[in-house]
């Protein structure tokens, strides 16, 4: 019984069903874990791996410089920025807003720098449901290529204080 000490040598061969099950489970696990590195070579959806440290002041300065250069309008009090696909794009998370509203072109790849100037936030593009973490003091470099057009929302999905549920930003893809 499993509540008594087994006697003697218990290193004994397996029964047939155990053996088959063990091999099936092992093979399936091999498939599942080989998928991860392989997907980095053959897939086009992978978690980005480039990141840097950045101070809140430096990041705010980059956001301001971008707004001066590329602002094309205003929506609900937020500047609408239409960046050049060849240059880095900056998106700031703070309590409780995403700045600026980005206007991106479909099927162009952008290098988007994500950072927070206060707390940890969660970057969640809806309705396509693409989720990343945004950490204060860290710049996360995301190579993003919108493959559908329309109006998208950025929700915050990491708790960031009592206004957390109002933290909604916008991306327009044209």
């Amino acid at each position: 019984m499993a509540i008594h000490e087994p006697q003697g040598n218990w290193w004994q061969p397996l029964s047939k069903d155990e053996k088959i099950w063990f091999i099936l489970a092992l093979v399936w696990m091999l498939v599942s874990f080989l998928y991860m590195p392989i997907q980095h070579f053959i897939g086009v959806q992978n978690p980005p791996s480039e990141s840097y440290r950045v101070s809140a002041e430096d990041f705010e300065a980059l956001i301001e410089a971008q707004e001066e250069k590329y602002t094309v309008g205003e929506e609900n009090g937020f500047p609408v920025v239409r960046p050049n696909p060849d240059e880095p794009v900056y998106l700031k998370a703070s309590m409780w807003e995403w700045t600026p509203v980005l206007e991106l072109e479909k099927d162009k790849t952008y290098k988007i720098h994500l950072s927070s100037v206060d707390l940890v936030h969660g970057f969640s593009i809806q309705p396509i449901n693409l989720n990343l973490m945004v950490i204060p003091g860290i710049d996360y470099v995301v190579n993003l290529k919108p493959t559908s057009s329309g109006d998208f929302r950025i929700l915050c999905n990491e708790f960031c204080g009592l206004g957390h549920h109002t933290m909604v930003g916008k991306i327009n893809v044209i």
Binding site: P47, G122, N129, N131, L132, N157
Partner: peptide, 12 residues
Amino acid sequence: GTEQFSIIRHNT
């Protein structure tokens, strides 16, 4: 918990 699938499920 698969690296890529986390993109579409994390924090939801």
